[in-house]
Design a protein around this nucleic acid. Structure first.
Lengths: 205, 205, 205, 205
DNA sequence: AATGAATGAGCATTCATTCAT
DNA sequence: CATGAATGAATGCTCATTCAT
């Protein structure tokens, strides 16, 4: 019992900080997603958190650090989802459906951090992108080997380039993701379905 | 007559001015494409033009005005191209090929203005986007009716949504366009071909 | 008796506090000596003490208060030494030797508080310098009457101005003291000897 | 005529800038001398110049740059004076008199830049002290060889260390210089004379 | 006795913009 | 046409200080 409660209690203090740090990251994500990294001010972020500007530096060493953490937070989550999806043994089409669903659902649920990662990570200096690069590589590999597997299993045409297709899927999804964020009336499931249909079957008769 | 007098009336200076104004717009486009609207400084733009910061205001009333003009310049060009492409009477696949070619070629030729329009136009206040909206509508209509025509002519499946497909194509093209800008080694014609193939035939076997 | 009761009255906690207060003063002295008053942060001082920034205020009401206490601590010590030296009945040259030794030894032993007093006390508002002024007066009198005595006893030339000479000696010593702090290889006894020699005999042949 | 006027006219614009830059350096010198580098604000300097804070950056790239330029300005002047003094063929005592006069006169004439160099140059990062180090070396050499010459010519005792004596003279002069700045009533010529007398003849009977 | 958390004021610096020349 | 010079407002960031716990 004790040990159980301990396991829960021990990180109480750091938990409080950790909890509020997450709040901080999400506030920053929201603001960066809205105004872009350079268009956002630390004041904006602090306002979303309900604290004063100076206090923000209790959670981030700098604005750039905040961008880095937002990007990592958003991308880590997303890559973890991909990992789970690709780990399941299931036919190709189901996997593709889930990947698109995961991607677009993230946007609709205002996963601002992912949007920020996609749109603003290039404003980070290279040193701050090391982890992101690793995650990106992992992610691309997951997607590309999913497609390669699809080819091997004859589900997909043999003459497509997995790398090219992977990148294209990301492109379509990001494009529709941005749309989903801007237009709340847009139906999520409809969008998912059409994306998948387009990618899988093309438009030719 | 009228047109003649007009051509004559605009004095030489105006011509010189107009020429240098284009230089200014392209300089601004380059800088905005590189650093984003908020990340760019008027000093950056002036430096590219080889003039001093204050002199820039001879060409733009404000930084925002510069962004607006860059966006309009880039998009006008592009929509004009679309117009020409769609005006030709030719089979659907040829049209689609040309559209994608036009889009991606623009990126490869560092048509920064188009990139700026795509990535940064939302930083303009709504009032400054009136013309852009009109152009966008025209553009979407051209693309969508091309697709609708494709459906009518039985070239395309009847169950696709022209609006959705149009938007998706733009998404893929922008995504690959950004890639083409970043990676100079990437082959342009290869990319065009694969884009078209993916959109037209999908990936399923 | 009195002294005994005093020693007993101050409770154990006070003792512990007093001990740690000295640690605090010496930490502040070190940091102020290194970075100057305005260049130092309370965080720096706390770090030297191994406590957190906020906790520093248990020992000092303010940063300025800390500077004041450091100065007083450093100067009181030094003036007390002077007092002892001047109280001894000994020939003038021996006294002068001891004064210079005392001054320079303090620097070499990283008596940062003295350095801070010499270099930074002017950043204190006048109200905070009352005690320091008294100490300074006492110190100057000690030094000047030592010199006056030297004149009376015919050890020194009759035509020198005790005030001027006193101030000059302090100047030389501070100058060499700073050097001693910066260059650890510099020999202490050598320096003392040469200082004394210069002051006493000048450089003329 | 033309050429004459040209020679004068050509640098007119840069002259205006250069003139005001000197004003800027002297304003910075005054403020740094008063409050120390870290205690001074760019606002203080701007106020002395009668311009707004932001405009200061038209003359200095940064506050640190300002400190560097002040130090160099102050020290260059002083070393140049030394150069002239030491170049003259004259007996040792006359040279020494002039050196002390030059040093103390600079202080009395509120040569704040020299004071700043003496007291604040250590707050500059090493990279910013390259020129200052060179000047310092030159200066020390001038002073030391003056003393060495004094020894050679039998004017000075053979058993003194030129380096030590040089440094001590600087120490005394700086000490009295600070005094001269603080106490306007102090007589300049008196101080010079006593400094020289002390250094040359010592205090022993 | 100490700390985590927050604050507010200040500060260096940047930058769009203006304007006389 | 262009520039030098200046401005003012903003912005990221630091830091002394406070206080509940």
């Amino acid at each position: 019992m004790k040990s159980t409660s301990k396991t829960i209690e021990t990180p109480v203090m750091s938990n409080k900080y950790a909890q509020k740090k997450v709040v901080a990251i999400e506030a920053a994500a929201q603001v960066f997603a809205d105004k872009g990294f350079h268009g956002a001010t630390t004041q904006d972020i602090a306002a979303v958190m309900g604290i004063k500007q100076g206090s923000l530096y209790y959670y981030f060493r700098s604005k750039e650090q905040a961008l880095q953490e937002v990007c990592e937070y958003g991308f880590e989550n997303y890559v973890a989802q991909m990992d789970k999806i690709c780990a399941r043994a299931q036919p190709f089409q189901a996997t593709m459906q889930m990947i698109i669903t995961s991607h677009l659902t993230n946007y609709r649920q205002k996963n601002n951090a992912m949007k920020v990662h996609n749109d603003q990570r290039l404003y980070l200096p290279k040193e701050r992108r090391v982890l992101l690069k690793e995650l990106g590589t992992k992610y691309r590999r997951l997607l590309e080997s999913t497609i390669s597997d699809g080819i091997s299993s004859n589900a997909l045409r043999a003459d497509i380039d997995p790398h090219f297709v992977a990148y294209s899927i990301i492109g379509i999804c990001n494009s529709w993701g941005a749309y989903l964020v801007r237009d709340e009336a847009l139906d999520l499931f409809d969008t998912i379905e059409q994306c998948a249909d387009l990618v899988l079957r093309g438009i030719l008769n």
